[in-house]
Design a protein around this nucleic acid. Structure first.
Lengths: 387, 387
DNA sequence: GAATTATAATAAAACGTTTCAATAAATCCA
DNA sequence: TGGATTTATTGAAACGTTTTATTATAATTC
């Protein structure tokens, strides 16, 4: 960091010039104490070594407001002393005073859901840029576990909360849980209505619209739908988009070609459900040339069912999903899908809470913000134009 | 916790009997101070409310050794007071004294690698059981970022470090970085030789052996191999297993059917590499009936190449991977693979560091442990017996 | 040249706990 | 009965910072 000249040990000894005279004063009793204090170097050691008071050291090392009165030479000597002693401020003491700890709680309901991964990356990345560290919790879709974790995070005084509501029905009370603590909170993937907690969502309706439009453009008219669980708001919204497109284009939606995923606690179980529902669809013996799935996972289930029945995708049936999770581009055929800008969503969430934290720090009022990001159609191999 | 009788508000008022007399003493000045201290209730408040000293309160609330001298009624009153006031010990103050914070650093090199996901779940789950919270960092496969994160974690005084070396070449210095800090450390997926840091690995050699054995048992003799990057130790070990099996069974390994993945920084790029290498393999026009890939991701790439060339799996070519990451069971065809017990690996890592933390706490010496877990063959759709 | 104001550095009071050493009362036991 | 334990409780000293006054100089201003 400080140029190439990094002769660690030596630099240290040089800087002890000041310190050594001082140590003579305090004598051997000092030395013994130093040994007891298992080699942890405190701000007092830096003060002693640099010849200034702890106050000055603190001010310099933190670039506190008062630091502007401190002349460069002083600063330099203190910094040198700190470095050569290998001083690491004790974060507990620091936090105890300042009530800050540069930590935010990230609450997932299921890490195992591939949907989480990229969002997590987005969160991590933005937090890193802002010098925050995430404490990760995973509720395993269990309400009790969520509450316990929430308790632990608050106890730990995280400065903000980012909740990733990937597959989540149980918002009945959650809303209350989340509003109680006086701490900036943002929820990703769901908008808690009437809530003071911020949110980051994706334009599900728009996404549904363009998915339908894409299939239509390719010439498909007999389109099957595996819709998501009713309890999921994204289910509703995506479907609304489809309906809107159907109206706009004069496309007829055949009820016989529509099937719903059951309410299910885990997105991974969703694949099997999708497999079952698609089979049911096939049993209805109503032909279709394209299938739109609630999300990519659903799509995988559907693809399996089709393949089992000897129907090849995309040759005999086009397939479109939603989300664009990582496996989707790897699959054979790779999935055409509607991408959620997951990294951006994570970044947006972080930016919101960081703003909120700053607002709180400056005693400004901060009002909840609700950001809705656009979804983007990604065309790959699983959809094909009708001949 | 304290029986069914939980009339919150009332219990609180009752307990204030003692407190109220006390408040009279201190008068209104006390009240004002209470308002200033923005509604955060401290151990002193509990002491006042219960009529005992902070020492006693602390002892009771922590079930400290001295607590055995404290009669049940006293305990009960203190607990009640704490509960009704909604007392939450300040974790900073606590940590400042006790030098403990029930936090461990979890360092990934790429969250995006599906291999991480389940291990992460295993870690999280075990930490939860032990009442620890993970601080998550992701180095994005960048050395500098890793170092910065390491620094941040140490600054934060995490009690232990779990490093997930999923796809990692840069151990040259890393070893040094990790041995310097005097803090329990375990590395998953790689054994740092000559190192004092513990490790959890999987039996790659055994896994390679059983994968080869599986193909052989199905009648395959002309087997192609897409081996992993040379720099990866698991590459070497898996291959050693294959070789051992070949010797045992008298199977001939045709060099023309062996291809290596280039050294690459990200596992996700690995898919494309695998695609390319498999194509190269196909260009050699040496026929094979089965292909063993370095890992599942590689397998996906290979499958894509085969499919593109009109070769169907498993009908015309059996495919076997390694790891059993989440997408593998979802793929069509689902992948036969060698499963790494990822959740167990995470759990093992946690168990090791927790033991180590306890050892340090009790001033016992703790020696590094190296645990190697068995890999398990998982047979699915992508392998088939030769007719 | 006196009254301000800016610069430089510090002492001391928090922050909210835990724990050691001390005290006081009750119990033991020979 | 009276010294030794055991039981019950507490005062006060840390833990390592930050921050608010405060003091002491030096530099301006009018």
């Amino acid at each position: 960091m400080n140029g190439p000249r990094q002769t660690w040990q030596k630099a240290g000894e040089q800087d002890m010039l000041t310190a050594s005279t001082d140590e003579k004063n305090s004598g051997s009793g000092n030395l013994k104490r130093k040994e007891n204090r298992k080699n942890t170097v405190t701000i007092r050691d830096v003060a002693r070594a640099s010849g200034f008071s702890t106050s000055t050291v603190s001010i310099v090392l933190n670039s506190a407001p008062l630091a502007r009165y401190i002349p460069p030479p002083t600063k330099a000597r203190i910094q040198k002393a700190a470095k050569s002693l290998g001083y690491r401020p004790n974060i507990f003491a620091k936090s105890l005073r300042s009530k800050r700890n540069h930590t935010v709680g990230v609450m997932l309901f299921d890490v195992t859901d591939p949907y989480c991964t990229l969002i997590l990356r987005g969160i991590e990345n933005s937090l890193y840029q802002a010098s925050y560290l995430p404490i990760l919790t995973d509720a395993h879709n269990e309400r009790g576990r969520f509450e316990r974790y929430l308790e632990m995070l608050l106890e730990r005084r995280v400065e903000a909360l980012i909740v990733l509501a990937n597959w989540l029905y149980l918002d009945i009370n959650l809303l209350g849980d989340l509003e109680k603590p006086q701490i900036p909170t943002v929820i990703i993937g769901r908008e808690l209505d009437s809530s003071a907690t911020s949110s980051v969502t994706v334009d599900d309706e728009g996404g549904g619209y363009s998915a339908a439009a894409h299939l239509y453009t390719l010439g498909h008219r007999k389109i099957a739908f595996v819709r998501g669980p009713k309890a999921l708001s994204s289910s509703k919204n995506r479907w609304r988009g489809v309906q809107r497109f159907a109206r706009d284009a004069g496309l007829e939606l055949d009820p016989k070609l529509i099937v719903d995923l059951p309410d299910q606690l885990s997105p991974n179980v969703g694949v099997e459900d999708a497999y079952r529902m698609t089979n049911e669809l096939l049993n209805r013996r109503r032909s279709f040339t394209a299938l739109m799935a609630f999300d990519d996972m659903t799509c995988f289930g559907a693809l399996r069912a089709l393949t089992k029945s000897g129907i090849k995708a995309p040759n005999q049936c086009s397939l479109i999903g939603f989300d664009d999770i990582a496996p989707s581009s790897i699959f054979v055929p790779s999935l055409t899908t509607v991408r959620q800008p997951m990294e951006s969503m994570g970044a947006a969430a972080v930016s919101i809470v960081v703003d909120a934290i700053n607002a709180v720090g400056e005693e400004r009022k901060f009002v909840a913000v609700h950001r809705k990001l656009p979804a983007e159609l990604v065309i790959r191999e699983s959809t094909r134009a009708l001949p």
